[in-house]
Write a protein that binds this DNA or RNA. Structure first.
Length: 153
DNA sequence: GCCAACGTTGGC
DNA sequence: GCCAACGTTGGC
């Protein structure tokens, strides 16, 4: 099993939105970054665990846990001119973008803020706290995952 | 809202 | 294939 961190702007899609979705499940669409796409297409599998991260908000940080509940599939929103995620360069016979379904697992009792993540010696190797850190889908180690869940209790 | 850091595009 | 211009991300 692998572990991931996925970012979302809570004004757009929050952990509560995920929890309140049918079957507590959402198609994670709209990834439009190649590195993140590669993780989704090539590495994520059904059953992987996800740290749900709120970005671009008052207190950015990890707020919950989700589970990957599908294999990677084509992101059809890229083909839909009505969609906000429409990408005219992704054509059905030459698809560019991929998605998975994720299901709400739990909210952390308390947010593990970016500030906390940055200052924790156990988490200095996290992708999130290194370099640009702009990846919206990024790998997390089993130790990092367990540590963050512990901090959120 | 600012802006640094990063990614993408497209002319050459 | 280089790189300048532009767009986006996301913390602050």
């Amino acid at each position: 099993m692998k572990y991931w961190l996925m970012k979302s702007e809570p004004d757009d899609i929050s952990i509560d939105d995920l929890r309140d979705s049918p079957n507590h499940t959402m198609a994670w669409q709209g990834i439009r970054n190649y590195q993140a796409r590669n993780f989704i297409r090539d590495d994520i599998t059904h059953g992987d665990q996800v740290l749900f991260y709120h970005s671009s908000c008052k207190v950015p940080g990890v707020v919950g846990i989700a589970t990957v509940v599908s294999q990677p599939t084509l992101d059809e929103s890229a083909f839909d001119p009505q969609s906000r995620y429409f990408d005219p360069k992704s054509e059905p016979d030459k698809p560019r973008w991929w998605q998975v379904d994720i299901q709400f697992t739990a909210k952390l009792n308390q947010i593990v803020s970016l500030q906390q993540l940055k200052s924790d010696p156990a988490l200095q190797d996290m992708v999130l706290v290194t370099k640009g850190a702009r990846l919206s889908v990024q790998p997390v180690s089993a130790d990092e995952f367990a540590h963050i869940v512990m901090l959120g209790q």
